[in-house]
Amino acid sequence: MARRPLSDFHPRERLAGVPHTTRRFACRSALALSPDGETLAVVSDQGAGTYEAWTLPATGGKPQRAITVEGHAVRSLCWSASGELVAAADRGGTELHQLYVRHPDGPTAPLSVDPAGRVQRLLSWNAASPDGALVAFSSNARASTDMDVVLVDLATKTERPLLTGAFWHVVGGWSPDGARLLVMRVYDNTTQDLLVLNPRTGDAREVTRHAEDVSHIPAGWLADGRALVITDEGSDHLWLSALDSATG
């Protein structure tokens, strides 16, 4: 039997599959675009046997390794306006994510980690504030059954709980002026409400009408300050809505 040369074989490449269940992974992304729009970061297995963060020109080109966390697999990414690339990584598929940041000059450092690896953190694609100073994420460090909204300062690594309570909260992104934070409060997989949060004071206000078996999933913000919402309110199907966050 003829043997094929090694040159016939190529490393297996995989892009990370992101399971979408509203309760756990809303707003998570395996892709992130740099602030200048010229570089794309992706979560991919380029033959190393685990997921890492790679960057490549947005117009196409050869990927370069950006973030590797020893013993962990990178799962989601967020790029700040000041150039820091933030990654969430877990060990062995536990979904107990640690957060790491790669600074524009190259080094990667822990951002929000716990040595025991018992805390679950959710990193949204639009978790970084418009000025690039803060990252908002969900964490169950306070209580394993709840997900609180926490702010971490990219410069000092200081964390500040912003919204706590007996709920599962998912960060839905910052308004263009940085004065508001959209948050999803999850009751179950088919019922969610949206809140607008003041990132300075922590004051929260519901902007959707609560109803059982009605979904309200954050999808970002428009430049005019309206929030984008994926919902099935009044319909048998999901549809995209633009919500005035001041009036609901």
Results as ranks from 00 to 15, higher is better:
residue 10 H to V: 08
residue 189 N to I: 08
residue 38 E to A: 15
residue 129 S to R: 01
residue 48 A to I: 01
residue 178 G to I: 08
residue 198 N to W: 09
residue 190 T to E: 15
residue 126 N to K: 04
residue 53 A to E: 06
residue 16 A to E: 01
residue 216 H to S: 14
residue 172 G to F: 01
residue 160 R to Q: 13
residue 196 V to L: 14
residue 185 R to E: 05
residue 91 R to Y: 02
residue 134 L to H: 03
residue 183 V to K: 03
residue 66 A to N: 08
residue 190 T to N: 14
residue 58 A to D: 09
residue 58 A to Q: 13
residue 60 G to C: 09
residue 158 T to K: 10
residue 49 G to V: 05
residue 26 A to Q: 04
residue 159 E to D: 08
residue 46 Q to F: 10
residue 21 T to R: 03
residue 195 L to N: 02
residue 181 L to G: 02
residue 96 L to R: 13
residue 153 D to L: 01
residue 25 F to Y: 05
residue 106 G to C: 07
residue 102 R to W: 04
residue 247 T to R: 14
residue 95 E to D: 14
residue 6 L to D: 10
residue 77 L to G: 05
residue 206 E to L: 12
residue 1 M to S: 09
residue 158 T to V: 13
residue 97 H to Q: 11
residue 32 A to W: 07
residue 76 S to W: 00
residue 105 D to Y: 12
residue 154 L to Y: 07
residue 92 G to H: 07
residue 92 G to C: 09
residue 82 S to Q: 13
residue 94 T to V: 15
residue 179 A to V: 00
residue 48 A to T: 11
residue 204 A to H: 11
residue 71 G to H: 11
residue 55 T to V: 08
residue 93 G to S: 14
residue 55 T to I: 04
residue 229 V to T: 06
residue 176 P to I: 04
residue 150 V to D: 06
residue 117 G to C: 08
residue 77 L to I: 14
residue 160 R to I: 08
residue 236 D to G: 12
residue 142 R to F: 00
residue 70 E to R: 02
residue 103 H to F: 15
residue 59 T to H: 09
residue 112 S to V: 02
residue 99 L to M: 10
residue 19 P to I: 10
residue 197 L to A: 09
residue 205 R to T: 15
residue 107 P to C: 11
residue 137 F to W: 01
residue 56 L to V: 00
residue 5 P to C: 08
residue 130 P to W: 00
residue 166 A to I: 02
residue 235 S to D: 15
residue 170 V to N: 03
residue 221 W to A: 06
residue 51 Y to C: 09
residue 127 A to F: 01
